[in-house]
Write a protein that binds this DNA or RNA. Structure first.
Lengths: 216, 216
DNA sequence: CCTACCGATCGGTAGG
DNA sequence: CCTACCGATCGGTAGG
């Protein structure tokens, strides 16, 4: 076992009980965030396997070996993209629901969930979730399990809404199966939706609601 | 320019005006088909980039260089998987519609299309179409255009049905957008459906119809 | 963080 | 089809 060296402690092995952040530590976490953003962008457009750590380094303005100062491995980078992405959108989803005010209808809640999900998938500044959706395979089984738990939490918020809509008759399929179909329909938009096309995210949301709900 | 050698003409440069097949040629086309099946299976489960031509050769019982006797490149193998897969399912789709007999309802036609599509996606012996759906990126632009044309033809068959259901009021979204959402919902089943699970393809089809159509 | 480097793997080919 | 091989690229590391 090596004793920890005094200078250049690898930030991917952060120490516990964090003291106040020095200017250098703030710099480091910013560089780390830049790496994550560059990686997410490249993973989304080229795929994980087709993206080299050299590509990522170059996109973040570093030399080829430098990403490994911030991340243990290429796989750890992928995991971090997915993990940080999920943490972000799960919180944003809860806020989108709270913004509806008191006692929103089930339909209004579904609308908010769908609209927010579109934002996450095809809105500006969101390569993270598409990477999670389409690069699942590249994770190790342990990583998959952990990301899967975050994904379950995100999707769980939809179930009460779907159950309520099923009870009222608006939703005609079984809620569990409906949830899987609906996420499929939404997640697939990554493949075809053009943010610069004629359809706005609001219109897209409206069409989705009309497709899935039988009334109104 | 090399004159064509007398023995071992590369089968991936087939001559025109084909004469009757010799036994050797039949053998060759069978070996080619085995390669395609092995490639489709590996591409589906590991992804194109994560599958080496050596993996494919081994799965087909060959040595590492041998796939290049049958295919110009790894990319040509991917293209062939997608092309042959699309040709197969497009024909099968037409047959599924014809089997409905004269004057089927629009609902019956949609049911047949969905049911057939599930068969293509998650039924036995079908790695080809999932590869096409999820390895799109790995094609060259020219290959993408050609496969895209085949895909358009396959999907075009759905439009008259959706238009008809829109007119009758069963479908409440715009047919063009509905088609995209519906294919998303169906194509995504590749990610979660378990053929050995409790849900049959018939039940899955029924749930999909209930989700997308507002009446009955 | 950079420099310099290693071992492994990969797509593809020549020659039979 | 196999054998033997090449050049390129890749993830990752030691040492500063």
């Amino acid at each position: 076992m090596n004793p920890p060296s005094v200078q250049d402690p690898a930030p991917h092995a952060p120490r516990r009980g964090r003291p106040r952040k020095s200017a250098q530590e703030r710099d480091e976490s910013q560089r780390r965030a830049e790496l994550l953003r560059a990686a997410a962008r490249l993973f989304r457009h080229q795929g994980f396997d087709a993206t080299s750590t050299r590509d990522i380094a170059a996109a973040a303005g570093m030399q080829s070996g430098s990403p490994f100062y911030y991340f243990e491995s290429k796989s750890a980078l992928l995991y971090a993209v997915m993990h940080d992405g999920m943490a972000l959108v799960t919180q944003a989803q809860a806020q989108a629901l709270q913004a509806l005010g008191p006692r929103p209808t089930a339909r209004a809640r579904l609308q908010a969930l769908i609209r927010h999900h579109f934002e996450v998938l095809v809105g500006p500044a969101s390569d993270f979730i598409p990477v999670m959706l389409y690069e699942w395979r590249a994770l190790t089984p342990e990583q998959r399990a952990r990301i899967g738990a975050l994904k379950d939490r995100y999707e769980a918020a939809w179930m009460p809404v779907l159950v309520s809509l099923r009870r009222s008759g608006s939703l005609r399929a079984r809620p569990e199966v409906a949830r899987l179909f609906i996420f499929g329909a939404l997640n697939w938009t990554v493949q075809w939706f053009d943010p610069h096309g004629p359809l706005s995210l609001d219109e897209l949301t409206e069409q989705a609601l009309r497709l899935f709900l039988g009334d109104r």
